[in-house]
Amino acid sequence: MSDLPSDEEAMAAKRYTVMNIVRLASIPAVLLGIAIAQGAIELPYALGVVLAIAGLLAFFFVPALLAKRWKASDRGER
């Protein structure tokens, strides 16, 4: 038996990596948004709030949306 992953396993590993990169990139966005909103960084308060909320939404919802989209494309749906 070969130690090389199948095409399906390789695709699953890539998708898993993308989902985790999205989550890891969202964390600094949230922290930066909080820092701006708290006044630690001199930028508009509204920018900080928007950035923090966008980071939270990306952290919780984007990986699920990606997974749903990938499942649909695997089944041949749109």
Rank of each mutant, 00 (worst) to 15 (best):
Y16E: 14
A35H: 03
V30F: 01
G48V: 11
R69T: 11
G48A: 03
V50M: 10
A67V: 05
F59A: 06
V30M: 11
T17Q: 11
G48T: 10
A12F: 10
A46P: 01
V18F: 07
V30A: 06
A46K: 09
L43H: 04
K71L: 15
L51D: 03
L32W: 09
L32C: 13
R15V: 15
N20D: 03
L66C: 02
Y16L: 13
W70G: 00
A64F: 07
I53H: 03
A58W: 00
L65C: 04
L47Y: 12
I36H: 03
P5I: 13
S2N: 11
R78M: 14
L56N: 04
P28E: 09
D74M: 12
S73K: 09
D3Q: 11
D3G: 15
I27A: 13
F60M: 08
L51T: 06
Q38T: 14
R23P: 01
N20W: 06
L47F: 11
L65Y: 04
R69C: 04
L66M: 15
L43G: 01
S73N: 04
V62S: 03
F59D: 05
A12D: 14
K71S: 15
A58T: 12
L47Q: 08
L31P: 04
A67S: 13
A46G: 00
L57S: 05
L65D: 00
V49P: 02
A37Y: 07
E8N: 14
I36V: 15
A64C: 06
Y45L: 15
A13N: 06
P28R: 03
A10H: 05
A37C: 06
A52Q: 07
A54D: 06
R69K: 14
L4G: 00
K68C: 07
D74W: 06
L51P: 02
L31K: 02
Y45V: 14
Y45S: 06
L32T: 12
A72H: 07
M19I: 06
E9P: 02
G48L: 03
L65P: 00
F59H: 12
F59T: 11
Y45T: 05
A13R: 08
S6R: 05
Q38Y: 09
L56P: 03
Y16W: 07
D7K: 12
G76H: 06
V22N: 08
K71C: 01
R69S: 15
P5M: 11
K14D: 12
M1V: 13
L57F: 14
Y45E: 07
A64D: 13
V30Q: 04
I53S: 04
S73W: 08
I53Y: 09
L66E: 06
L65E: 00
A40M: 13
M11C: 09
K14C: 09
V30R: 01
A52V: 12
V49T: 01
A12Q: 08
A29W: 08
A29N: 05
A54S: 05
D3E: 12
A64T: 12
D3H: 13
V49F: 01
I34F: 03
I27K: 06
G55Q: 00
T17G: 12
A72F: 01
E8L: 12
G48R: 02
Y16R: 14
F60E: 02
A54Q: 07
R15E: 15
Y16G: 11
L51N: 02
L43N: 00
V62G: 02
G39F: 05
L4H: 13
L66Q: 07
K71F: 08
L43I: 00
A72L: 14
D7P: 01
